[in-house]
Design a protein around this nucleic acid. Structure first.
Lengths: 152, 152
DNA sequence: GGAGTATCGTTGTATTTGCAACGAAGTCAA
DNA sequence: TTGACTTCGTTGCAAATACAACGATACTCC
């Protein structure tokens, strides 16, 4: 009779395990999108994040990017150093608090961002195209909620 | 009429950019869950994945894990080497194709998995608890679809 | 059967990563 | 002011990672 007595419902399916699914999807998406701008523009994922954040936020400190972007501050620091060396951003001491480094895009950096932006939008909608519109909208809302971007 | 003529909708919000959101959520979730078993059991994320996959699939090759789990084969290989050294799995030449390495959990490895499993389930529902049941169900389905786990 | 090609797993290596430690700068209290 | 404490960004370092190259085995087509 009872086959499988000792594992009533505990057949574990890694493929359906949430942290695993998120990791795989995220890695796949990042890798794929990364390929686009890495090959064409020679910047890394970390660098793209810094650029994107600067494009959106104007002049900000390393600390701010670290806090909001989920990147270790050493990672931000090194990405910024490379970008500075490439002439894409400038570092300056903040006027009021000289511990802070004020990062801002140069016009070259801004131009680079302007080139990548349409590719980013396109890529994003390509990914979401696997879902229908309603589903995609709900998915984004859930994502916001899981990231706690929801509650005012 | 048309305010904001030259940037109709092009205010870019990194926080709402899908690849970015996925990366942040995934990294956060993995880090948090990883802390649990890293501290308690001394295994890494990569090692956990190998263990989980073996627990589910029985005896499999490095190649199989590499293909299904989105891990580089060198990563799988090294994780397996560490786990073998720790006595959690065994490696053997496959009978029919001696290029393949047959990985399987030892009883210690299985016991470790059995200890982690309830923690994994608990963790997963904690994460999903931020969504209501319907939303969570839809979220999982969308995730499946984005991972192309849907089409039969 | 044997040469050419493909696949598997491991290893070498350069890069990236996270974490801790550090100096510099700021804050606070007495 | 001074001294203890905190915060910011950089750097050192060990571990992890991706990618390529390699030896070993298997397959294919003649």
């Amino acid at each position: 009779m009872t086959e499988a007595v000792h594992h009533p419902d505990d057949a574990f399916d890694l493929d359906a395990f949430l942290p695993y699914q998120l990791a795989v999807l995220s890695a796949r998406v990042s890798r794929e999108f990364g390929r686009i701008y890495t090959r064409q523009f020679g910047i890394s994922i970390a660098e793209w994040r810094v650029i994107a954040h600067l494009a959106q936020a104007g002049t900000v400190s390393v600390r701010e990017i670290h806090a909001r972007v989920d990147m270790d501050k050493s990672k931000v620091s090194r990405a910024a150093a490379r970008l500075e060396h490439a002439g894409l951003l400038t570092k300056a001491a903040a006027k009021d608090d000289r511990r802070l480094v004020a990062l801002s895009l140069t016009s070259e950096g801004q131009a680079l961002f302007d080139q990548i932006l349409p590719l980013a939008r396109q890529f994003e909608s390509d990914v979401l195209a696997r879902l229908d519109a309603t589903q995609a909208e709900r998915f984004r809302r859930s994502l916001d909620q899981l990231l706690e971007r929801n509650s005012a």
